[in-house]
Design a protein around this nucleic acid. Structure first.
Length: 258
DNA sequence: ATGGTTGTGTTACAA
């Protein structure tokens, strides 16, 4: 069972990159963020033609998340529980392929401090609460997505330059630790502890060419999932192609599920 | 150099 997460920065602008990557890598499950499209005009056929079922939580212009799975999709949860007034499409959860998965697009939070940073922290608090409930169900669970948090300085090309950014501030890191301290395993870091492993490079200033990257896309596994972790990595290939997303896929391989 | 680039049922704002 190969499961990956990818912030595609518009599914319509990125459709050639996404279908190409699915064809070449054939993951069972892909968690997708920033689709930037409403459900009604999501390009379903192109993804379904590759053998995937699709769950979508779309939004016009901004945000939007989706889940592609080779297995039937059941028990879909649309939106992060805990605030009926939150209309930003940043969370989608389902049961598929013998496990529960969530596609997460955590708020960026800049500029910080400010209203957007407060929204980020309150959203993280809700995520911690909900993740705790899911954790207690004791089933294979993968929380994956663009968390917009670099867990530690090793995940940043220039930590000093980023220390006051919402992606690296101590509050963001403390909340992310509170989430992982529930008992989740970082699928990438469990097998790849070294520096220089990034999932995002800004479009500006030649960041990709200089390898000025950040690690903000993560896969967090419940014990029932991490017991079966046999591989993980970052696939930098799509970031180097024409018209790329500014993010690239992070993946893990789980043995013995399906 | 308060810059740079990409995306949007685009043309102001988010990332």
């Amino acid at each position: 069972m190969k499961i990956a997460t990818w912030n595609v920065n518009s599914i319509r602008a990125r459709l050639p990159r996404v279908t190409e990557w699915l064809h070449d890598n054939n993951p069972e499950i892909l968690l997708v963020q920033e689709i930037k499209v409403v459900d009604e005009i999501f390009p379903r056929e192109e993804i379904e033609d590759l053998g995937y079922n699709i769950a979508v939580h779309g939004q016009k212009t901004y945000n939007g998340v989706a889940i592609f799975s080779k297995f039937p999709i059941e028990d879909v949860v649309v939106g992060l529980p805990g605030d009926d007034n939150d209309d930003q499409a940043r969370y989608l959860e389902c049961f598929t392929g013998g496990m529960r998965v969530a596609s997460i697009y955590l708020p960026n939070g800049n500029p910080a401090p400010g209203e957007k940073f407060e929204y980020k922290l309150s959203w993280m608090k809700r995520l911690i609460d909900h993740a705790g409930k899911l954790f207690n169900q004791e089933e294979p669970l993968v929380l994956g997505g663009d968390f917009n948090v670099c867990p530690s300085d090793i995940d940043v090309y220039d930590p000093q330059r980023w220390e006051n950014d919402a992606l690296c501030r101590s509050e963001s890191r403390e909340y992310l630790r509170a989430l992982t301290n529930i008992g989740f395993t970082n699928a990438l870091r469990a097998l790849n502890p070294g520096p220089g492993q990034f999932s995002y490079w800004d479009y500006t200033g030649g960041a990709w060419q200089k390898d000025f990257g950040l690690l903000i896309d993560h896969l967090f596994l419940s014990p029932e999932a991490s017991d079966r972790l046999v591989g993980s990595g970052i696939d930098k290939t799509p970031r180097g192609k024409e018209k790329p997303s500014d993010h690239t896929p992070v993946w893990c391989e789980l043995e013995g599920i399906n």
